[in-house]
């Protein structure tokens, strides 16, 4: 689906989302009339200091206005922008700022929904889609922490060997299914049905607690994370 088709299907009652320099920001009318804040990245743009600050500011403006309407995050991005300037200026703080805004929105009763409709990777992924309460994918979305050729360089294994290993474990290989099995993506939407309905359904049953590790255990992609985290939480709660 193109971004235009996605926006049309998500917000049939209209939106005023601005699209500049690969960034999306604006608002949209939801089913039932609530006005959601919308941010995003399109066209596989990298996310650098300037973009992260702009999107972060948009989230905070929405929080300032109040209400309990959702914040929607649409993502088709590159990784974080890799440049000396971005690192010099403290890109980690800018990306963290955006993520904190999204997480705070959720904690203040503004459910956040990430919609992955294209590519994304690494720091840009963490600061946007992975900072939402619920992350869903559209068919064809291709999240990756690192592409297999780069991974081959680092691990000194051939792409063929990595591809073979990826068949037995979803834990390292790129792709929507692998990320879903590790608990990062809740569900994949059906583009032939109205996305507005699917969004409403997700909002209706979203858990405010972070249950991604438990989901990863259920789906077999992350066998240990949920149990280890819970054991440490119990021990630390008793000790503290």
């Amino acid at each position: 689906m193109t971004l235009d088709e996605i926006l049309q299907s998500l917000f049939p009652d209209g939106h005023d989302i601005a699209r500049t320099d690969g960034l999306l920001s604006g608002s949209a009318t939801m089913k039932g009339g609530a006005v959601a804040a919308v941010i995003g990245v399109e066209g596989r743009a990298p996310l650098g200091v300037d973009g992260a600050l702009k999107l972060g500011g948009h989230v905070l403006d929405a929080l300032e206005r109040g209400g309990d309407a959702p914040v929607i995050v649409l993502v088709d991005s590159d990784s974080q922008r890799m440049s000396k300037r971005d690192e010099l200026l403290g890109l980690n703080e800018f990306l963290a700022h955006l993520a904190k805004g999204l997480i705070l929105a959720d904690l203040r009763g503004r459910p956040t929904v990430g919609i992955l409709y294209g590519h994304t990777a690494a720091g840009a992924f963490i600061a946007t889609a992975l900072a939402t309460r619920v992350l869903v994918g559209l068919p064809g979305a291709e999240p990756e922490v690192m592409d297999l050729p780069s991974m081959a360089r680092v691990t000194k294994l051939s792409v063929e060997v990595l591809t073979e290993k990826a068949r037995s474990t979803p834990v390292f290989a790129p792709g929507l299914d692998n990320l879903a099995r590790t608990g990062g993506v809740l569900e994949t939407w059906d583009p032939s049905k109205p996305l507005a309905d699917q969004l409403a359904a997700v909002l209706g049953r979203a858990d405010t607690r972070d249950r991604r590790d438990a989901l990863g255990k259920e789906r077999g992609g992350r066998p240990k994370a949920a149990d280890i985290a819970e054991r440490v939480r119990e021990l630390a709660t008793r000790a503290g």
Binding site: A96, A99, K100, I103, L104, L107, A122, F125, I126, L130, A131, V145, M146, M151, V154, T155, P170, V171, F172, A173, N178, L179, T182, G183, G184, D210, R212, D213, G216, G221, R222, A225, A229
Partner: peptide
């Protein structure tokens, strides 16, 4: 950063940690 041999698990761990940091601070 992320341990490449378990990249998806590592990336999600970071997302979960960031969420937990913000929840704790909040």
């Amino acid at each position: 950063g992320v341990r490449l041999q378990e990249a998806n698990a590592g990336e999600l761990a970071i997302a979960e940690i960031m969420r937990a940091v913000v929840e704790a601070r909040h």
